[in-house]
Simulated scan of single mutants.
Amino acid sequence: MVAAVAAAAQNDRGLRAAIDFHGVSHRYELEGQALPVLHDVNLAVNPGEFVALVGPSGCGKSTLLRLAAGLDQPSRGAVLTEGAPVQKPDPSRVLVFQDPTLFPWRTVRDNVALGPQAQGTLAASSARIDDALKLVKLEGFAGAYPHQLSGGMAQRAALARALVNNPRVLLLDEPLGRLDSLTRLSMQQELLSLWRQAGYAVILVTHDVEEALLLSQRVVVLSERPASIKAVVEVDLPYPRHRDDSRIVKLRQQVLETLGFGG
């Protein structure tokens, strides 16, 4: 069944999509009852594209990221990467969570080195690890431990741990959600800078509509659970963007109205 759906998706959209959700529905079992989470989601994210997902809390945004990462398999439909079914986790698709989840007994550098160590390439990856630390501006904190970092620095370390794998797809599950407002603004710009330098595809889950509009090229608005796509808002504006730009304000109102918060 997955092979047939994959073939159909290839015919429809070709092999270029970094991540392609093709007719994806998903449900969980909760206390013996089926809990539908996603319904017939069709979304192709191209290489190098930045896409944001917004929607009501609990609608299934994080589930889409888990499916893209290969941590779960859809109940129906297929998730493809470059035309091939996503069947398991792979370093080319990295998921960054809201919590940095750093190992407290390892230094920042040793946390960043987890991927190469797990792949048996640690000895050959020293330069890659150093480059990842430089990208997130933590080269001066390589020997620090997680408890010595601020919240923003810990999230940078988590990003470096993802980037050291040279991913083609970066999956971000509210990575800035627990930061204070000033740190969050700074990290938004750093995320944007990293994406523009590296050129990977990004799928960002966020509850902040303004953040989605400032960072992404498309904002995908999801419905209540089981989530389907209500609207796709194109953000065809140059970077850097400013929250008081009248075009951003207008798009923000459009997204909020789609979410049911008009007026």
Rank of each mutant, 00 (worst) to 15 (best):
A157H: 02
K137C: 01
A160S: 10
A162S: 14
R66W: 01
T81V: 05
P91S: 04
Q73D: 03
L171I: 11
L67C: 02
A142F: 04
V164M: 02
L171D: 03
P175S: 02
L149R: 07
A118F: 14
L67S: 07
L138A: 00
L171G: 01
E139I: 04
K88I: 00
Y145I: 00
L138Y: 04
L138H: 04
D131P: 05
A123I: 08
Q155P: 00
S92A: 09
L159V: 07
N165P: 10
A162Y: 06
N111W: 07
L95T: 09
G77S: 03
K134E: 12
G151D: 11
R168Q: 15
N166V: 10
G115Q: 03
L64S: 02
L171T: 00
V112E: 07
V86F: 13
K134M: 08
P100C: 07
S125F: 00
S75Y: 03
P74K: 15
P167G: 01
G77K: 11
S126F: 12
L102C: 02
R93S: 14
V112T: 06
R128A: 13
D131T: 13
P146Y: 11
L67E: 04
L65N: 03
A118K: 15
V108T: 14
K88S: 12
D72K: 11
V112P: 12
D173G: 03
